[in-house]
């Protein structure tokens, strides 16, 4: 849940990068950390993992400066993607204001994307939230792997399978090179701040 201090004109909200294991959530955060240095307002915490897998979460605090007279700070988190860490994902989701769902474009990861999206839906329900109402953006990551000869799913197919019902903004990306990462983040932040505006009228 965002912390909104209308007296001091400060907002602090939480954006969570969700998605199946190895889809590139941590890589997104690493790129943001590297490319948006001016916005980064604290240390990136990435807990050491076995074989590059996130076991708990990654964390990166960023500041967006003044928006409509409010000082806006955002806490970016990633969840562990592997199925067995469902309980940890529920913990990290607590108090979430917006979500970036990082889907893997590789054809072999098709089912993992769908399972993870279903898991997100269930975890949000447990917290009394709806996947249809929470600010959500989809990212189709690893588009660059097509050039290496790996079979990837066409964006149209991913849209059909993951976004047909949700109808949320979606972006192609290659988090390793940073392509699409900024657009995804910007869209997710816009939606989140709009949603907070509808709820708390902070921009008045």
């Amino acid at each position: 849940m965002a912390v909104i201090n209308l007296k001091n004109r400060q907002i602090e909200c939480k954006l969570v990068f969700y998605g199946p294991g190895r889809s590139g959530k941590t890589t997104n955060l690493e790129y943001i950390h590297k490319a948006f240095k001016k916005q980064v307002i604290g240390k990136m915490i990435s807990i050491d993992t076995e074989g590059d897998r996130t076991l708990f979460f990654d964390f990166l605090p960023i500041g967006l400066g003044k928006i409509k007279g409010c000082d806006v700070k955002v806490q970016l988190y990633t969840v562990p993607g592997q199925v067995k860490y469902k309980a940890t994902r529920q913990l990290v989701l607590k108090g979430v204001d917006g979500i970036v769902f990082v889907a893997d474009s590789l054809a072999v990861r098709r089912e993992k994307n769908m399972t993870s999206l279903k898991d997100l839906h269930e975890n949000l329900l447990k917290m009394g939230l709806s996947i249809r109402k929470i600010p959500l953006v989809l990212q189709y990551n690893k588009r660059d792997l097509a050039a290496k000869g790996l079979p990837i799913m066409p964006v149209k197919k991913m849209e059909h399978e993951l976004n047909r019902q949700l109808q949320v903004p979606s972006f192609s990306a290659s988090a390793l090179s940073g392509e699409g990462v900024g657009n995804t983040l910007t869209a997710a932040l816009k939606l989140t701040l709009q949603s907070l505006q509808n709820e708390f009228k902070w921009a008045q």
Binding site: R22, G51, D52, L106, V108, R109, L145, G149, L150
Partner: peptide, 8 residues
Amino acid sequence: ELYSEHGL
């Protein structure tokens, strides 16, 4: 080889 390289 590529899947292995990407941790899959």
